[in-house]
């Protein structure tokens, strides 16, 4: 019986070491996260009525990205504690403003921030400090972060929502972007969103 136990323990340790070094669970990946995972993740309901209205959601209901009233959703994975996210915040706010001021894109492209490892309070501190105008969602226990692949912050995802083609991650980027305009241009180009002639 003791031999059986020892063998069982060794087997479990071997499995643990395999996962640890395979990188599948641990790597701070810069690669494109699984589109299936991202679209299937349940996000907690925003509490702020302005955020609910912006995303076009029902009040108090958890949601998935494909329920957002938009053609494209830009998701920023950030943390209140991340110096790079703090430095990038004004530029991300500017991205929001550029989109909001464009009559064609303002209802087609929406932004969401997910505060990895941040409580609701901590996300609120970040929102207040940088006057973030778009919804920020807490991911206190790293649930979303782990499902996405433990990416570095800030991390940006471009997700297209199409009722027929489904939800697709068409873009991902680790680290800060070089200006709101070129970033938006890239999002528009890759998503296939085009202004009507």
């Amino acid at each position: 019986m003791n031999t059986f136990r020892k063998k069982g323990c060794l087997l479990l340790i071997a499995i643990g070491i395999y996962f640890l070094f395979s990188g599948s669970l641990l790597s701070a990946s810069d690669s494109l996260p699984s589109k299936v995972l991202v679209s299937e993740i349940q996000l907690p309901a925003p509490k702020n009525p302005a955020d609910i209205n912006y995303l076009g959601l029902k009040e108090g209901a958890n949601f998935k990205v494909n329920q957002v009233s938009a053609n494209v959703v830009i998701v920023e994975i950030f943390s209140m504690y991340c110096p790079a996210c703090q430095r990038e915040a004004p530029e991300v706010n500017r991205l929001y403003s550029i989109i909001k001021e464009d009559p064609f894109f303002k209802d087609k492209i929406k932004l969401i921030g997910i505060g990895t490892g941040n409580s609701e309070f901590e996300v609120g501190v970040f929102k207040k400090k940088y006057n973030v105008p778009f919804p920020l969602i807490p991911d206190e226990n790293f649930y979303i972060h782990k499902r996405i692949g433990e990416v570095r912050t800030p991390y940006f995802l471009g997700i297209s929502i199409d009722k027929q083609a489904g939800t697709q991650v068409f873009y991902s980027k680790a680290g800060k972007f070089k200006g709101a305009e070129p970033f938006l241009e890239k999002i528009i180009q890759l998503s296939g969103l085009k202004k009507e002639e």
Partner: peptide, 24 residues
């Protein structure tokens, strides 16, 4: 013993890299 071993491994897998993810 098996459960304890698995718990330790799980903790190691999920706790070690959850912080310090800033690109900076």
């Amino acid at each position: 013993i098996l459960i304890k071993a698995f718990s330790v491994i799980s903790l190691f897998i999920w706790c070690t890299t959850a912080f310090g993810f800033s690109d900076a």
